[in-house]
Design a protein around this nucleic acid. Sequence first.
DNA 1: GTTTGTGAAACGATTCACAGCT
DNA 2: AGCTGTGAATCGTTTCACAAAC
Lengths: 206, 206
Amino acid sequence: MRKISESTVRRLSLYLRFLEQFDAQGQATISSAELARRGGTTSAQVRKDLSFFGSFGKRGLGYSVPELTARIRDILGLRRTYRVVLVGAGRIGSALIQYPGFRQRGFHVRAIYDTDPKKIGSGWNGLVVKDARQLESDLAREPTDIAIVVTPAEAAQDVVDRLVRAGVKAILNFAPAQLVVPADVVVKSVNMALELETLSFALANR
Amino acid sequence: MRKISESTVRRLSLYLRFLEQFDAQGQATISSAELARRGGTTSAQVRKDLSFFGSFGKRGLGYSVPELTARIRDILGLRRTYRVVLVGAGRIGSALIQYPGFRQRGFHVRAIYDTDPKKIGSGWNGLVVKDARQLESDLAREPTDIAIVVTPAEAAQDVVDRLVRAGVKAILNFAPAQLVVPADVVVKSVNMALELETLSFALANR
DNA sequence: GTTTGTGAAACGATTCACAGCT
DNA sequence: AGCTGTGAATCGTTTCACAAAC
């Protein structure tokens, strides 16, 4: 497939959220202009984003809400569910695991790992924290799509290496570390301090 | 000042983190090539990023680690500390407030607000959760730079409107909602479900 | 000899504008 | 008449490549 930019993918996710809202309100069709208004972009951008994947609209009419919803779900790979494991049973992990948005969209957290003996064995939202040493044997038994890494920065690269060796192809990283992975593994890093720094930059430069 | 792109600012944050590490190791100088290697970019990109703000290096030698560190801190507005308030005393807020990276970089969470009577008055990492109705009067007394919004999606726009009216100029938003603010207010949204969807897209399109 | 700083070139993303369907 | 789909034009960002500084 032609190379799709990250911004296009992020906008598709946004459009999907709006489409779900319109669908819930029973609205049958929607124009690119209306989607653009909601998403803070332009109608041409919406049409261009969609055009990479096909032509889903009707000229003069707009897009069928249920159809476009289904198409975008398809494009984003949201028809199936994903097995997710969480490495690091700290506060951020704890918050993430209970975030309803994950489950709603088919991301099922199936195991939590930590190295701290005090945490191992404790219950966590219906799951028991497992010993991180079990990671390899568990993943061999239960192939897993996505790992969320919430370890301290020092531990992150080692954990990621082990996850990659065990066949994990997608990693969401919250550790403030720059991770190295093979080309066929995709990493998305979320770094809170960095987000705040874009704000302080904006405040300082006005 | 000339318009600086968001990607440049994010990279500067990254460089800063690396510089701090090099500084801790007592390294005196660093080349754009070495910074690039660590940050997963190119030396030309590093030099271009810095060139928007001045020329900080010595040809043939590289950059003085302490000097460049100081310059980037300056650029990012990290010389001063920031008063931060948190709106929404849920799990994500709880995790964020204890994240040491914030305090280390001068972002001081000074108050937490919620509307839930069961949460109001409870202790939270040395702070007491306050009634969200106090927001306006508190902000009038203690001007605040940054607000972190961790409310449910439905409540977010209302909270943001009140924050903006009270003079807050920068908002870090974790609620899965598209927020509308005046042009002089900067909003940075972090949306976990959207991050995961970029991963599922990558997994689906290989 | 090494590495910066920076115009110029290449690339990529967004916006324009309009022909083509409904 | 209204709105999509899409080449072409525009705009912004990254990479190249080299003169200048050390």
